[in-house]
Design a protein around this nucleic acid. Structure first.
Length: 271
DNA sequence: CTCTACCCCTGTCTGC
DNA sequence: TGCAGACAGGGGTAGA
């Protein structure tokens, strides 16, 4: 499941291969993703130059003069740079072939991802316009979170996973950050103090930076990369470890469900 | 506005 | 060992 660090790693990995390159050919092998892929995408993109590759939340934005390709990796998607000899496999749904002979290949076995086109200012797109701040920006801080939480009764974990509040905090990092900050994920968001939010903000930024740094170590081999180690390279303290002893206090980690998402926490350390 | 339930899909895991 | 069924998971959306 690509989380923000994996998406950022992907952006950094593909950027140098495709920026300023001309699209020669687009192949769509399966257009039914989260939303259908634009039917004329081949025609629209042919001979178009990539001006930049950026990211907003977990959306990868491939910008051109004519418009922007918006890609979301969903939970099983990946984007890789391959050469023209690399045979497409079962779930490789889109290829963008460039004049430098490299191919940007989109794979998404579970098809929760998206591959969209817009010719309007991309930040006004309905998927992006209501998004909250990036977690690594300065505007994401304790004051902001406390203010946002004022009228919110939802569990604090659900709250920080709400993309209108802050983007890019997936299930894994939400659980990990709450553990590090010592906050019980079930608590109503409005009852968490500013002091506690300050701790949470630090934890979120720390864990995301750390994960991006780890992801970055694979950049050099991105062309041949067979997958994304991403958070697998991180030492996870609670996610996927229910029933195991807490590494702080040895008490059994508990598994609960919040907002239809599995949530692991330590009932002793997280108050 | 806030919140919950549901849906899209398939690889992996569990139980028989 | 094989098969069926349960489950996970991002995030948009309908409806309460």
């Amino acid at each position: 499941m690509p989380e923000l660090p994996e998406v950022e790693t992907t952006v950094r990995g593909i950027r140098s291969f495709i920026e300023n390159q001309i699209i020669e050919k687009v192949t769509v092998r399966h257009s039914k993703l989260r939303w259908p892929i634009e039917k004329n995408i081949q025609m629209i993109l042919k001979n178009t130059v990539i001006s930049s590759v950026t990211r907003r939340a977990k959306y990868i934005l491939i910008n051109t003069k004519k418009g922007t390709i918006i890609i979301h990796l969903g939970m099983s998607g990946s984007l890789r740079i391959v050469d023209s000899n690399t045979v497409a496999e079962k779930h490789d749904y889109v290829d963008i072939e460039f004049s430098n002979q490299f191919i940007l290949r989109f794979r998404d076995p579970r098809r929760f991802g998206a591959f969209l086109w817009t010719d309007k200012p991309v930040m006004n797109h309905s998927l992006l316009i209501h998004l909250g701040p990036e977690p690594l920006n300065k505007q994401f801080n304790a004051e902001y979170l406390t203010k946002q939480a004022e009228s919110r009764n939802v569990a604090v974990k659900v709250f920080i996973m709400d993309s209108k509040v802050v983007v890019g905090i997936g299930n894994i990092y939400a659980a990990e950050a709450l553990f590090i900050a010592g906050i019980n994920p079930k608590r109503p968001a409005k009852n968490v103090s500013k002091k506690e939010y300050a701790k949470l903000v630090v934890a979120i930024k720390m864990i995301l930076r750390k994960a991006i740094k780890k992801g970055g170590t694979t950049l050099k081999d991105f062309v041949n990369s067979q997958g994304n180690p991403g958070y697998f390279a991180l030492h996870l303290k609670v996610y996927g470890k229910s029933g195991k002893p807490c590494e702080n206090c040895n008490k059994k980690l508990e598994l609960i469900s919040l907002g239809q998402r599995s949530t692991v926490y330590c009932p002793q350390c997280q108050k």
